[in-house]
Design a protein around this nucleic acid. Sequence first.
DNA 1: TCCTTTTGGTATATTTTTGGACTAATCGAG
DNA 2: CTCGATTAGTCCAAAAATATACCAAAAGGA
Lengths: 229, 229
Amino acid sequence: MNAPGDQKLGAADIAALIRREISKGNLQLHDRLPPERVLAETYGAARGTIRKALTRLEQEGYVEIRAGSGTYVAHKPDRSTTDAIENATPLELMDTRFALEPHVCRLAVLHGRHSDFDRMEELCTRMEACTEDPVGFSEADTEFHRALVDSTRNGLLIWIIDQIGNVRSEDDWTRMRHLTLDAQTIRTYNVQHRQIMNAIRTREPERAANIMKEHLETARLSLTRASET
Amino acid sequence: MNAPGDQKLGAADIAALIRREISKGNLQLHDRLPPERVLAETYGAARGTIRKALTRLEQEGYVEIRAGSGTYVAHKPDRSTTDAIENATPLELMDTRFALEPHVCRLAVLHGRHSDFDRMEELCTRMEACTEDPVGFSEADTEFHRALVDSTRNGLLIWIIDQIGNVRSEDDWTRMRHLTLDAQTIRTYNVQHRQIMNAIRTREPERAANIMKEHLETARLSLTRASET
DNA sequence: TCCTTTTGGTATATTTTTGGACTAATCGAG
DNA sequence: CTCGATTAGTCCAAAAATATACCAAAAGGA
């Protein structure tokens, strides 16, 4: 494990290593870490050094030291961005989109500008030319939803949906999605996209939101149908 | 990256390299960077040069130099996560909650368990005891909304709302929020929370969502009223 | 229960490491 | 050539790390 090139580790280094193990989740809440004397050996340092590192981690709230008993993890791992999103199941993603996108439509009505809408209709046109090209359609579709949320001018929403979109563009999800994309489904989507655009143009927030819900419902059906195959 | 053909690096170059490592996150907060003598060797420069670079980085606030101890990173890497959320305005947060929380209610009806609902009602009781204690109420309120989203069992949603909640617990936002929390407002909130709970208990997703919308509308009004003061 | 082992807590003398400061020689471009 | 930056040394003092010993609380087995 310890390669020959292991340099000397100071208390700060060891603290950083353990802190990272905890943040990463390798050491979970209430886990007991090895005795100081063992840690000393594994890290190749003296016990006093380990002790300094642990004392520091205790002050930072990462661990709790109980005399005679041991040292215990006392800190929840940070759920990192990537973890939360990468571990999300397709259904979780779907539910999240169900929460966000209809309201995004409402906000688009409120805050969107003509130039935003022009761009979105341009993408609609592009999608309509892709009836026989699922991959091309999928790309344009992602861009469309991205443009939609952009038009809300809400940086937080944009960021959230961007994160979600990053997953959607990979893995099984994409593959599964492409399976469901026959010409008929694409035509349905295109109609819905146009309807959404019209509702936004005519400043009808609730109608836009409702069509988006239908749109997502259609997508969810395709998804479950595909996963049953 | 630094191929054998590394030409002579000046103090400014080395400072730039290290600065970049820190910004990129390869060197994280509290990490100790190698001793000056080692850096001198790895960068192929004399110790005095390294020293100049480090001194400069210290003045810029990237590192902290402790005599006899070492040089430590004292700068958080730019994280898009925290940036997007920390720069969010209260109104953006509000719109995002408007998107998420009503749908969270629907999902709570679908996926929540009795134990979840018990916990939420316990929090309702706690809030009702805080009519004259805005701070206590606020804490319980945050926990309530957290418990609500927990009951959806959707890790992605939980993470998103967790992130948003972390901001909400700080800064002007909290201060502004407390200003708006007179006893009357708290009573209104409590009634709404109870109504939401009832709708979830009786498995009425749309009713729960609608009451949550009202609840958020109330909160938004309080907010705008406060910001006009 | 009692006894042993394990574990953290403390103390201390010693050695090593590390940054701080200074200097003279060297290199490079204007 | 001159001027600035760089280099390659040296010595210093503070900080950290080591090695060792002993104590007290907790845990576990007989």
